[in-house]
Each structure stands twice: as C-alpha cells, then as structure tokens.
Simulated assay, not measured.
Amino acid sequence: MFAGGIFSFCGMFGMVFATDVLQLTIFIGVVMGFGQCLVFNSVISSISYIFGSEKFGLYLGISLCGISFGTMVFSIFTEVLIQSYGLHGAYLFLAGLMLNQCVAAVFIHYQWKKKQLHRSSSEIHLLEEQVKEVEVNLNGSSILRKLSSVTKFRELKAIPGMFIFIVVFAMFEGTYQARMPYIVPKAIDNGIDPMAAATGFSIFGASGIVGRLFQILVNAITNCNAMSIFFFALCLNCVSNLLLSLTAQYSWYILALIFDGVSYGLLLPYTIAIIKQLSGHRLLAVASGWGFTFIGVMSVIWGVLYGWFYYIFGSYQEVFLLCFVMECISIKLILISRPLRKMIQCRPTFRDTNFE
C-alpha cells in the first residue's frame, strides 16, 4: 500500500509537466493506475486480515464510503482548484494529497503488528504451515508450476462459479471505470453548464454513500444473501446507463446519476463479499488480485473502444449504450452459471452480522 501511494503521487505529480496525450496516458493510465491498484487491493486484504470474518462486511462498507465521499467532494473541489490555480496547480495539489495514502499505510501496518502480538499459538502454527507449503511448492518446480502456486490458479478454478464471477466483476467494473470520464463531457455536450454538470456528478458521490450506508445497515441487521443485492444493483446500473445514453435533460441526468451512485455503492462492497464468500479468508487477496487484473485489461480495451465509438459516431450516446449492452451480458453470465444462479436468493434473518 505504501508503494502504491508513492506510485500514485508520481503519476499525479508527472501530470504537472505533461504536455501531450502520450504523457497523460503514461502518468495517469500506467503509473497512477498501477499505484491505485496496489492501494485498493491492499486495503481489502488489510480489512479482512485485521477484522477477520466476523464483521468483515460492516467494516468493508464503512471503508468504501470514503470512495463515494471523495467523489462527492472532489468533483466540485477539483473544479474550484482548476479555476483558482489552473490545471497544473490543481494536479500539484492533488499529488500532495496522494501522499496521504502512505500515511494510511503506516497506520494499517501498525494495526497489523499489534494484531501479530495477540495471535494465539494455533494461529501462528497455521501460518507457519502455510508458509512451508508455499516453499515446498516453489522449490524444484517449473516456472509454470511456481506461477500456478503463487496465483492459486488451480485452487480458484476448482471453486464453482469463481472465475465466472471474476469475469462478471471485471466486465462491469472495467466498463464502468472506462466510461466515467465521459459523464460530465456528455452533459456539457447536451448544453448543461460545466459547474452544474460537476455538481450533478457530486450527487453521484452522495448517492454512493446512500448505497453503502444501506449495505452497512443490511449487513448489521440481516444475513440477506450478497448475490441477491449484487444482482439487483447490477440491474439498476443497467438502467442508469440506458438513461445516460438516451436523455439530454438535466433532471434525467441527475436521476441517472442517483441510480448510478446507489447501484455502484452496493456493487463494490458486495462484490468483495461474494469473492470472500466463494474463496474464503485465505484466498481473498489472490482472488481479488485476479479480479483487478481482469479489470485492468477490460479498462484498456473499453477505453480504446469508447474513444473509437466517439470518433466514429461523434457523440457519447453510443458509449453509454455499449456499457448498457456489456452489463446486460454480465447479468446473463450470472443467470447461465448454475452456482451463481443458486446464490440469488434472499432469506433475511435478523441479528446476524455476516454476509453468508
């Protein structure tokens, strides 16, 4: 996580001196993207490690509220920075904020060390056995076997529905991240004032907080199945993409962003919960790593494809229509996968703090 903060700082700081699209792509798309991937995956693993399985969903939801809060605040704050200090000054200010991730990494490492001191002898013995198992698998093995052992490919492949869900996760998240930069430009193209468009995007962040508070509430009082809410949120996100593609009025733009924020506020925490439910505590970090690797690949593909669509059609409407189609395919993948389809059931039982 500390290394991810440094990479994020370097990527944002490099934008101060960027003068063309290639440099922008390298600093933001490669350097900062790599750093953010390290940070996010480390945060998820740290939450699972520090708090364990008992209240994982609750603390995960609280932590992810920060993403929605940041989206709500920084969509307007960044516009104010640009108007006050110019584009390069805004990047310099944001680069400084990226270093706070390093400070957070130090605090998390302190909590990790603190928990290490309170481990029972059985937990320490289990960890030692796992380390020995990895060392045995790595010694004297071929490169492919070593790679398979480190990535836990065979173990994850044996879990019913795991890789299909990882593909679903990558499809909706990859298309989602690739289309985010087009939301405000589409509103401006439709004649909406830039500040009003940025304000609307802050409503997206506020709606994300609502979605995550709902997730925290559900997780605190019921054991409602995570896949049920994930499936509902994915359908709601499809509706938001359809509204964003078809509407040109500001009121419908706001409604679409509310749907978008609430659905994404539910999708991300429940995605991690489902991956943990399928893979267990021990394989969570590796399974999440597979998911974020596929997301990176999807983001590259769809980023290029969205740009090509805009170049061909000259509007952003087709970009959001393509997102709608891809998320419909994600829904279809869940429905045709028997293990995932069986998970779509909701039988709430109160006073249970687990997703499972």
Score class of each variant (00 low, 15 high):
340 L>I: 11
236 L>D: 06
258 I>A: 13
311 Y>S: 13
309 F>N: 07
250 Y>M: 14
343 M>V: 09
248 A>T: 15
301 I>Q: 02
234 L>Q: 07
327 E>L: 14
283 L>K: 02
340 L>T: 10
249 Q>N: 15
323 C>V: 01
242 L>T: 05
250 Y>V: 09
336 I>M: 10
272 I>K: 06
281 H>I: 11
262 V>D: 07
315 S>Y: 12
283 L>P: 01
240 S>T: 10
341 R>Q: 14
246 L>G: 01
258 I>K: 03
303 G>V: 00
324 F>M: 15
292 F>I: 10
306 Y>K: 05
332 K>I: 14
304 V>R: 09
314 G>Y: 07
303 G>P: 03
314 G>E: 09
263 S>C: 08
329 I>P: 00
304 V>L: 13
327 E>Y: 11
338 R>T: 09
328 C>A: 15
291 G>K: 02
297 V>M: 12
310 Y>K: 09
270 Y>I: 04
302 W>S: 11
298 M>G: 05
236 L>P: 08
305 L>Y: 11
336 I>C: 08
317 Q>L: 03
305 L>M: 08
285 A>S: 15
296 G>I: 10
334 I>G: 07
258 I>P: 02
317 Q>F: 02
319 V>E: 11
330 S>Y: 00
245 S>Y: 08
278 L>D: 01
283 L>V: 00
273 A>M: 11
332 K>G: 14
277 Q>I: 03
310 Y>L: 00
321 L>C: 07
234 L>K: 05
299 S>K: 06
254 I>K: 06
300 V>N: 09
337 S>N: 13
296 G>K: 08
298 M>P: 02
313 F>N: 14
251 S>E: 08
240 S>Q: 10
255 L>T: 15
342 K>R: 14
291 G>F: 01
292 F>R: 05
252 W>Y: 12
296 G>H: 11
251 S>R: 00
277 Q>H: 03
287 A>D: 05
259 F>I: 06
346 C>L: 04
289 G>T: 00
269 P>T: 09
345 Q>F: 10
307 G>C: 02
341 R>G: 12
341 R>D: 04
323 C>D: 09
327 E>H: 13
299 S>C: 06
342 K>Q: 15
284 L>Q: 07
268 L>H: 04
240 S>P: 12
250 Y>S: 11
284 L>F: 02
246 L>R: 05
326 M>Q: 07
256 A>Y: 01
304 V>A: 14
259 F>R: 04
248 A>M: 00
292 F>P: 06
276 K>N: 13
244 L>Y: 07
296 G>R: 12
263 S>G: 02
252 W>V: 03
303 G>K: 04
293 T>G: 15
267 L>W: 01
325 V>S: 09
325 V>G: 00
324 F>D: 13
344 I>Q: 11
